[in-house]
Nucleic acid binder design. Structure first.
Lengths: 235, 235
DNA sequence: ACTACGGTTTCAGTAGATGAAATCACCCCC
DNA sequence: GGGGGTGATTTCATCTACTGAAACCGTAGT
């Protein structure tokens, strides 16, 4: 460990190498679906031998499993914890609280509505109410996009007072045929999530998006309030 | 590194020390809900300083968060991966395939039906269809019980040919007022999961359990077949 | 039979993890 | 307001447990 010559002390928080790598592997394997040793190793640019050792450990602990082809995927322990995260605790409450508002947005706009939260420098879509239409946005639950240059990101970073008016729009930023409108969900002045409506770009046009804004603003405000009050329910 | 001669509450398989500990911490924190530094440290019987260092790293990576009281809980990265695990890949397919059969069991027995899988020496309940009755078994999704001495465990360990007849029963094994019947779900001769009906012991009595057996056997066979065929859908 | 390509094993060197102890930050009680 | 108790945080000398290059193995392709 060397200290840089000048000014600010390195924010290089001494994070354990071994642990960090194991976690990165877990993340990579779960995100990429079934994946082979060589592929993960290359993706994280770490030597195959080290990668193998870690993957073995993860499999032994039940965090990952190996299918017949030798490829790695999520294991029973991951599933156990995944269910805990989504059915207990703060996140479960967030998801439950958001559902009716997502559905209301779908009813109002006929497009799919998502809930998103921030994860470091990315935004993660964590819940959806799907549009009833045949052509619709779907499948992005658990998906993450960069915070920079996206509408969701803008909402999640929002730090003004009047969150109601903070509706951001973005058209074809990530995928050329997707258009979206988003609004921050604030509780006690802090943005905790964002509501988001996504649709095909030629149906969800300027006029449709404009119409969606009102509903979005109303629902994000309502969700924010809903999240503010039941803080009583501790634990 | 000495292993404390004392008993360690969670039977942790030894992997690389640093990585293993980080993962154990992740598991403990997610399982226990919001929990303080001292509590986790004691639960895993590791020194506070080491525990703190690891928790900090996990928080920095988004795996955990710290609430206002300083207690730790699941973080956004955990939620992202949790959603991936439950909405993509093999487990998602398992959950989706099981749902109709769980519902059929509820319709047939009027008691709650669970799907369980094996995780090391434990059985994890991973899906539920709840009984319509007011008094019912609920809330065990993500919960795990030992494999030894439970009916679910017996089913998950089953290795005979005729899985249909392998219905196990258990009454008050873990909780005194719960009775259950279970059956293994086999695909290609290997047990991959277990179906399980749980109810209050005095309503779900011998007669009711006997009646449930047929439905259980039928549904577990059907689920096994359903899981066997769509293996086509690779990835 | 030869080559290429993943996965697996080995092993010596040292980066990096560890934990006892000291310190700090609160509360609560007297 | 001071004293004592609890729990979080920092420090640092010690030494282990992690690393990765290289060699090896097995299988598939030509």
């Amino acid at each position: 460990m060397k200290s840089p010559p000048t000014t600010s002390p390195p924010p290089t928080l001494h994070v354990s190498q071994s642990a960090g790598r194991a976690l990165n592997l877990l993340d990579a394997v779960i995100s990429e679906g079934p994946i082979a040793l060589g592929a993960v190793a290359e993706r994280l640019s770490m030597p195959a031998s080290t990668t193998l050792r870690h993957l073995r450990a993860l499999v032994a602990g039940g965090w990952l499993t190996q299918d017949d082809d030798g490829r790695y995927g999520p294991g029973p322990t991951s599933l156990r914890l995944a269910l805990r995260v989504t059915s207990d605790g703060a996140f479960a409450r967030l998801l439950a609280a958001a559902t009716p508002h997502l559905e209301a947005l779908v009813a109002a706009t006929q497009e799919s509505a998502y809930l998103a939260i921030r994860d470091g420098s990315e935004a993660v879509y964590v819940a959806i109410a799907e549009s009833p239409r045949a052509i619709r946005h779907a499948g992005w639950v658990g998906h993450s996009v960069p915070i920079e240059g996206t509408a969701v990101g803008e909402s999640l970073l929002f730090s003004g007072q009047d969150a109601v008016v903070a509706v951001a729009e973005n058209v074809g930023a990530l995928e050329p045929d997707v258009a979206g409108v988003t609004a921050p969900v604030a509780v006690g002045g802090a943005v905790v999530a964002a509501l988001c409506i996504l649709g095909p770009i030629d149906r969800f046009d300027r006029r449709a998006r404009a119409a969606a804004r009102d509903a979005l603003a109303a629902e994000s405000l309502a969700l924010g309030r809903a999240l503010g009050s039941p803080e009583l329910a501790v634990n």
